[in-house]
Write a protein that binds this DNA or RNA. Structure first.
Length: 600
RNA sequence: GGGGGCGUAGCUCAGAUGGUUAGAGCGCUGCCCUGUCACGGCAGAGGCCGCGGGUUCGAGUCCCGUCGCUCCCGCCA
């Protein structure tokens, strides 16, 4: 870090000193990290953003400062002046970047004293997350979280630098905008100027960036806040940040190549080594079949295999019922010897596990020299057993796990099972990372419940194929997946108003409806829209991955809890009756229940 | 909306089968200590066992409800 401008508080950073500074006068400021009071000499580790510096208070050389030093407590804020001195060789602390020197303090001023913190700042112990969030200012002082803040900054700075070098314009788009149903639930903001109407917070800047292409911006990006009123997950927050990118006159390879360069740089800034691009591209159907996921974790094997045609005609009713209807598949994975070592109880638990994904059960089949060591084995011919073993690469001592169900259910259940067992068996080598594009998505999937086609990506994605046959349409879309996280996704967009209308029709949006909701886009498309495409990345996820964190909450300075509340500010909270009146809003349920959020 | 895990000292946790004064480490307070760096030594304070109800002679422990955290399913174009 560059030296701070010298003033009454300090003229240097704590973390910047080394043996070369010996005998230099210095003034530093920061927080008391730890104290070691010997009654005589007192040591204080002083912390600022740059790091730690040991201060020494000698009773005989600076009696006044030494007197004060006895009163210092962790997290007190002080400014200290003195001389940088070289430590005797036996007193050097190799753990500390500044460990060869210390500041012999002659003068100290306490700027603020601190209550005892509710949790330790000087060690990285696990602390209840509500407590951390309620005292986020203290939590962010902790080394790990301070590093996450800095990491996030470096990631975003690298993105800006890369895109700036390539002539992208950073453009802001509205936060107060219009609700465009479809997709996630919107956050709504009542409009005072027009009672009974509402703004919506953007789920993404999708339509605006397309308008920017029509405007001739050619190359756009934005660090964009997005809002989706859906339940959270470890990798999902109601508000999150995307790197949003759009380009004109491009095809898939233009976007993919640009992004490979961008992400390769961003990830190496974060210390994550990946092979040099180009990166592998996995067709969506293959990802679903082999890994049971559209964001496969490729760091380990245990691939899923479809064995439907191999077990066709067996005497096992469960399989035959599924296969006979033509609506189902039989798939399996090889859980290996570690799978075979699972207890009866553990195998029973796997049934409950797959039931969460809609599957009825998973059938375990131990592989032996003689065939399959299960009372179900008798239903299968020796040829079937051999064929399945061969496809799954099974040898005696392995355990095969089968799921028979609709293809989507079998994929989800076995995909989740694969991840669970992969982690349980420690199959992911530490430090290993795998990146892959997922491409060749279907344009639509059929929603049984709603009885209509739904876009897998979004309805602005350009389809290829015959629009009259929605089920066969492909989407010009691409997702980037790292270690089982979906990091980003994008597509080549529709630039023809006619095609756009047809896609709306296919998903049950009439021309009239389309005009009402998306008229501003359809209108703009009529005035000369360039072919264009782009992508958006989840910055919170990228930072979490780079920081080795399980949850994006650790990548966000002030996140919400998993239930969408903010223990720091108490949001969401009730508002004054008067505010509601001004907005023309009346609460249907009367006054809200005031929850005791965060009470322990 | 549903399922799993969790809630005991400021923090992190232990408290089989219900049993009498609820423990540990760290932190905190006081005293001692002139080269520590997770300093050390002595002494001490600190508990609505998340909350409410129930069973019982007796509940941190069992039952019901509720609140909160967390992971997952649904949801997330």
């Amino acid at each position: 870090m560059k030296p701070p401008r010298a003033n009454g508080y300090r003229d240097a950073w704590c973390g910047g000193f080394s043996a070369g500074d010996t005998d230099a006068p210095a003034r530093v400021a920061g927080w008391v990290h730890r104290r070691r009071d010997h009654g005589g000499v007192v040591f204080i580790d002083l912390r600022d953003r740059s790091g730690l510096l040991q201060l020494v208070f000698h009773p005989d050389r600076a009696p006044e400062a030494h007197q004060l030093a006895h009163r210092l407590r962790p997290e007190d804020v002080l400014s200290a002046a003195g001389t940088i001195v070289r430590r005797d060789p036996e007193n050097v602390n190799p753990q500390l970047p500044t460990g060869e020197v210390e500041l012999a303090v002659s003068d100290v001023e306490i700027l603020s004293d601190a209550d005892t913190p509710p949790f330790p700042i000087d060690e990285e112990v696990a602390v209840d997350e509500v407590l951390r969030l309620r005292h986020r200012a203290l939590d962010l002082r902790r080394e790990g979280m301070a590093e996450m803040l800095a990491l996030r900054h470096r990631v975003i700075a690298a993105m800006r630098a890369y895109l700036d070098e390539r002539d992208f314009l950073e453009v802001e788009t509205p936060i107060l905008t219009r609700s465009t149903p479809e997709g996630a639930r919107d956050f709504l903001v009542p409009a005072r100027i027009s009672p009974g109407t509402f703004f919506a917070l953007p789920q993404s800047p999708q339509l605006f960036k397309q308008l920017l292409m029509i405007a001739g911006a050619e190359r756009y990006y934005q660090i964009a806040r997005c809002f989706r009123d859906e339940d959270s997950r470890a990798d999902r927050q109601p508000e999150f940040t995307q790197l949003d990118i759009e380009m004109s006159f491009v095809e898939e390879d233009d976007v993919i190549e640009l992004i490979e360069g961008l992400m390769h740089r961003v990830l190496s800034v974060g210390g994550l080594g990946l092979p040099a691009p180009p990166w592998p591209r996995l067709p969506h159907a293959e990802a679903m079949e082999r890994y049971g996921s559209d964001r496969p974790d490729l760091r380990f094997g245990m691939e899923i295999h479809d064995v439907s045609e191999l077990v066709q005609g067996s005497d096992f009713k469960v399989f035959e019922n599924v296969l006979g209807s033509g609506a189902g598949v039989v798939r399996a994975l090889n859980a290996g010897p570690q799978g075979a070592a699972m207890s009866r109880h553990e195998l029973d638990e796997l049934n409950e596990f797959v039931q969460a994904y809609g599957a009825r059960a998973t059938a375990p089949m131990p592989v032996t020299e003689e065939g399959w060591g299960s009372n179900l084995a008798k239903f299968f011919s020796p040829e079937q057993v051999a064929a399945v073993n061969q496809r799954l690469g099974a040898s005696p001592g392995d355990l095969l796990l089968f799921v028979a169900d609709r293809a989507s259910v079998a994929a989800a259940a076995l995909g989740a099972l694969r991840l669970e067992l992969g982690h349980r068996f420690g199959l992911v080598p530490a430090g290993r990372h795998q990146v892959s594009w997922v491409v060749d998505f279907p344009m639509f999937e059929y929603d049984e419940a709603e009885g209509r086609w739904d876009p897998l990506h979004h309805p602005f994605t350009q389809p290829t194929g015959d629009l009259a046959d929605p089920g066969a349409l492909r989407a010009r879309a691409y997702d980037l997946t790292i270690d089982g996280w979906e990091m980003g996704g994008g597509s080549i967009r529709i630039h023809s108003p006619e095609v756009q209308r047809e896609v709306f029709r296919a998903i049950g949006i009439s021309d009239q409806e389309a005009q009402e909701r998306f008229g501003f886009l359809l209108d703009a498309l009529r005035y000369g829209a360039p072919p264009h495409g782009g992508i958006a990345f989840g910055i919170d996820r990228i930072v979490a991955l780079l920081g080795g964190r399980e949850s994006i909450r650790d990548a966000i300075a002030f996140p919400k809890t998993a239930s969408g509340l903010d223990p720091l500010t108490g949001a969401p909270a009730a508002v004054d009756e008067r505010q509601l009146r001004e907005l023309g809003v009346r609460l249907a349920g009367g006054a809200p229940r005031t929850g005791d959020a965060g009470t322990r």
